[in-house]
Amino acid sequence: MATTLPVKIEFSLPEGWQPASPDEVGAPEVAFVALHPESRDGFTANITIAGKIREDLADLVTLAEESVQRLSQAATVRVAKRNQVGTPEAPALTQTLRLSGRLRGLPLELVQSQVYLIMQDVHDPARRAVLEFTLTAKSSQFEEVQDDFKEFVRSIRPVDAPAST
């Protein structure tokens, strides 16, 4: 069953992307999936959103390394690029991974662009929401969809909780 995000956000999907049920596309560990049907060629480019509460003080590089280790269980992973971005109030990290594996017995080369964003709990600074936004595409598809992913990431905004009275 698809997860829910620990914080509320809003975003806009670029033209040509369609929401899909995480459960139906085999990604129950994420809260949101969008597919790019035009890129379908043995693999459909996709955007996912996942998030969880972290009560440890793991920095962004540690979080990114955890992702590399998790993905390494299913494919050969190489970190192509990693950059810390964002602000002190909203730190973020981007990384681009090259994945080599097999899909239905055939070799598959993927590129995964990940953006990690930390949002502090204003009431308890030890609690942090870590959001992960990911674009996964075949190497041959990546150039076609990477600008869409950048547009998507730029559209992400936190949704303020309603004021209590």
Rank of each mutant, 00 (worst) to 15 (best):
residue 49 I to H: 08
residue 49 I to E: 06
residue 51 G to V: 08
residue 51 G to H: 05
residue 54 R to A: 10
residue 54 R to D: 12
residue 54 R to Q: 08
residue 54 R to K: 11
residue 55 E to C: 08
residue 56 D to A: 07
residue 57 L to V: 04
residue 58 A to V: 05
residue 59 D to V: 04
residue 59 D to C: 06
residue 59 D to P: 04
residue 60 L to Y: 05
residue 60 L to Q: 05
residue 60 L to F: 04
residue 60 L to S: 09
residue 62 T to A: 14
residue 62 T to S: 13
residue 65 E to M: 14
residue 65 E to A: 13
residue 65 E to L: 13
residue 67 S to I: 12
residue 67 S to G: 13
residue 67 S to A: 12
residue 70 R to E: 15
residue 70 R to D: 15
residue 71 L to P: 01
residue 71 L to R: 15
residue 71 L to D: 10
residue 72 S to H: 09
residue 72 S to V: 06
residue 72 S to C: 09
residue 72 S to L: 09
residue 72 S to A: 15
residue 73 Q to K: 14
residue 73 Q to F: 14
residue 74 A to I: 11
residue 75 A to H: 10
residue 77 V to Y: 15
residue 78 R to K: 13
residue 79 V to Y: 12
residue 79 V to L: 09
residue 79 V to G: 07
residue 81 K to V: 02
residue 82 R to P: 02
residue 82 R to W: 00
residue 83 N to V: 09
residue 83 N to G: 01
residue 83 N to P: 01
residue 85 V to M: 10
residue 85 V to L: 12
residue 85 V to E: 12
residue 85 V to N: 08
residue 85 V to W: 14
residue 85 V to D: 06
residue 85 V to Y: 14
residue 86 G to V: 07
residue 87 T to H: 03
residue 88 P to Q: 09
residue 88 P to C: 10
residue 88 P to M: 10
residue 89 E to M: 11
residue 90 A to D: 12
residue 90 A to G: 04
residue 90 A to C: 06
residue 91 P to H: 03
residue 91 P to V: 02
residue 92 A to Q: 15
residue 92 A to V: 01
residue 92 A to Y: 02
residue 93 L to I: 05
residue 93 L to T: 05
residue 95 Q to S: 09
residue 95 Q to F: 02
residue 96 T to P: 01
residue 97 L to R: 02
residue 97 L to G: 03
residue 97 L to T: 02
residue 97 L to M: 07
residue 98 R to M: 10
residue 98 R to V: 14
residue 100 S to F: 00
residue 101 G to Q: 09
residue 101 G to V: 06
residue 102 R to N: 03
residue 103 L to I: 03
residue 103 L to G: 00
residue 103 L to A: 06
residue 104 R to L: 03
residue 104 R to S: 01
residue 107 P to V: 07
residue 109 E to S: 15
residue 110 L to Y: 07
residue 112 Q to N: 11
residue 112 Q to L: 06
residue 112 Q to S: 15
residue 113 S to W: 06
residue 115 V to L: 13
residue 115 V to Y: 05
residue 118 I to L: 12
residue 119 M to K: 08
residue 119 M to F: 15
residue 120 Q to K: 13
residue 120 Q to N: 07
residue 121 D to I: 05
residue 123 H to C: 01
residue 124 D to G: 01
residue 124 D to N: 14
residue 125 P to N: 05
residue 125 P to K: 08
residue 126 A to K: 12
residue 126 A to V: 13
residue 127 R to D: 00
residue 128 R to Y: 01
residue 129 A to Q: 07
residue 130 V to G: 07
residue 131 L to C: 04
residue 131 L to Q: 08
residue 131 L to M: 09
residue 132 E to Q: 13
residue 133 F to N: 02
residue 133 F to K: 05
residue 133 F to C: 01
residue 134 T to D: 05
residue 136 T to F: 15
residue 136 T to D: 02
residue 137 A to G: 10
residue 138 K to P: 01
residue 138 K to V: 00
residue 138 K to D: 05
residue 138 K to M: 06
residue 139 S to H: 01
residue 139 S to Y: 00
residue 140 S to P: 01
residue 141 Q to V: 04
residue 141 Q to L: 07
residue 142 F to D: 04
residue 142 F to E: 02
